[in-house]
Design a protein around this nucleic acid. Structure first.
Lengths: 157, 157
DNA sequence: TATTGTTATACTCTATAACTATA
DNA sequence: TATAGTTATAGAGTATAACAATA
């Protein structure tokens, strides 16, 4: 049996390319391409609001969990402490969130949405859902989406 | 019906977090996490060979398509021309690939593996397959993998 | 000693504009 | 004019080490 696969037009954007290792049908390659497509659509749909995926995810987690510790928000989103500081700084500088010092452990900051942050997120949500729906449509419906989410969870956690 | 979802331990690595927008079960978030997990495993398994995913993908495509145009390799891998130059430079400096000028169109370079490059790729392939198999195992078998690949293709192409 | 937040730093990936040489 | 390869540059994302304040 051969290891070689022909990469069709739809897979590689170019016909007649021989896929020696199976690369183009590999998990790493396809997941990377999907991630890029989703990222680009996010920027198309939401980029006008000066918001990156990480910013949106932070606002979204704080909205559901007011007063969560900074480091816990970071770990929930799999963002490292060190890299999280600039994200929180940016959102705080724009008046969308607030750091509040803990009274009982003065190393800790609790994060809260400001009213402006809440309003901003509410404006974003319909567009973000539209962005998600676009891909649910491409997948062929919510069941396919749920199937995909489950498969992805078995990969990462 | 509520928009709020409880993020279980397995989904967010932290119990009791409220998922206000559904973010943690969204396509963008799960695909990003999966991509990160695959990338990190690639580095664990193959990082010792001083090879990045993009390097591997270039070697792999050239192996199956000797003499392919530089710009066609780039577009096959969805890497932009401009960003592709440094990748090709690096592989050529290491003696793994060769640029050969076209006789009929002197703007064009054709890419070829050197014998060293062929040998290097052959050393890499078992480890790369082991890396892929690890995730097929997590997914629960080849059928699940194929299912996932099809879903991902419907997202990106 | 350990933890929280922080700074500094480096490397990778992606994107755009503009250049050159060739067609 | 258009194309192939290139350079320069900027913006994200991610990773590690080390520090200050606090526990």
């Amino acid at each position: 049996m051969s290891n070689q696969h022909i990469i069709g037009e739809s897979a590689a954007g170019r016909q007649g390319v021989v896929d020696y290792s199976g690369l183009v049908h590999s998990l790493g390659f396809r997941v990377r391409r999907a991630q890029l497509a989703i990222l680009q659509d996010f920027q198309d749909v939401l980029g006008g609001h000066d918001i990156r995926p990480a910013d949106f995810s932070v606002l979204s987690v704080i909205a559901g969990n007011s007063g969560m510790k900074q480091s816990d928000v970071a770990s929930t989103l799999s963002i490292q402490r060190a890299n999280f500081v600039a994200i929180v700084d940016g959102l705080e500088d724009r008046g969308l969130i607030e750091r509040r010092r803990s009274d009982t452990d003065r190393r800790v900051y609790f994060l809260h949405l400001t009213p402006k942050g809440t309003q901003f997120l509410e404006e974003l949500l319909p567009k973000w859902r539209e962005h998600e729906e676009k891909f649910i449509g491409r997948l062929g419906g919510s069941e396919k989406r749920d199937q995909l989410i489950e498969l992805l969870k078995s990969i990462s956690d």
